[in-house]
Write a protein that binds this DNA or RNA. Structure first.
Lengths: 107, 107
DNA sequence: TTGACCTGATACCAAAAGGTTTCATATTTA
DNA sequence: TAAATATGAAACCTTTTGGTATCAGGTCAA
């Protein structure tokens, strides 16, 4: 609801996740990214816009080109969100352990 | 493309992520989950189906009720996917460090 | 058995998403 | 300057998505 929504939305599409993997290897212009997918440049451009909105990539201008680059920090919202659950499970395990210890002391 | 798509898709909706947080606290029937959201039971049921398809929750029958529970293992595909990028960045840092060391040895 | 209760499933709707086509604009470069 | 290159943006189309309303079926309790 806060600001994590654009990130999760950006990751929901398989084409966009594939683009991110491409960008992990090297920065690419829109045309370069387009060459790797079976769709028009306009469609790829839309995906790049969504990825940018989600903070997962950055775009810099180089002459008439736009160079897209992965933004490692953009993954933070997702990692944090997953972290909530992991923390939760850790706490649950701790509680379970405590309960067992307590039960043993009652023997 | 493999089997991670249903998981990412399930996480893309804010209502579904909210449901997961609810289920982190305790297992709930469809009716119980519905009480916490401003939409019909049918709509919530659809969301639960998507979450189940994504492997993020499990559903067990208890009489005439369906009890929905969080499935911790369901998050693995997302963690693994994120892991690829983290591994990648680690390698990049290692390469950078190596390059710097090599450069220094040339002084 | 008979209601009351919990859920499944279907039909239907409006809005969003993913694509394409087309045209305009900015940069290079011959 | 002119042509080629790289992109932005808008209009349009089809499918998916998130929701509702409605009805049928299984389960519990009096």
């Amino acid at each position: 609801m806060i600001t994590e929504q654009p990130t999760f939305k950006a990751l929901a599409d398989p084409t966009r996740r594939a683009i991110l993997r491409q960008l992990a290897n090297s920065d690419m212009t829109i045309a370069q990214v387009s060459n790797n997918f079976d769709m028009t440049r306009a469609a790829v451009k839309k995906h790049l816009t969504v990825l940018s909105d989600g903070g997962l990539i950055t775009v810099r201008t180089r002459g008439r080109e736009r160079v897209n680059a992965l933004n490692p920090d953009g993954f933070a919202p997702v990692r944090d969100w997953l972290g909530f659950f992991e923390q939760f499970w850790d706490d649950r395990l701790t509680d379970l352990k405590t309960a067992i210890e307590k039960d043993r002391s009652n023997d």
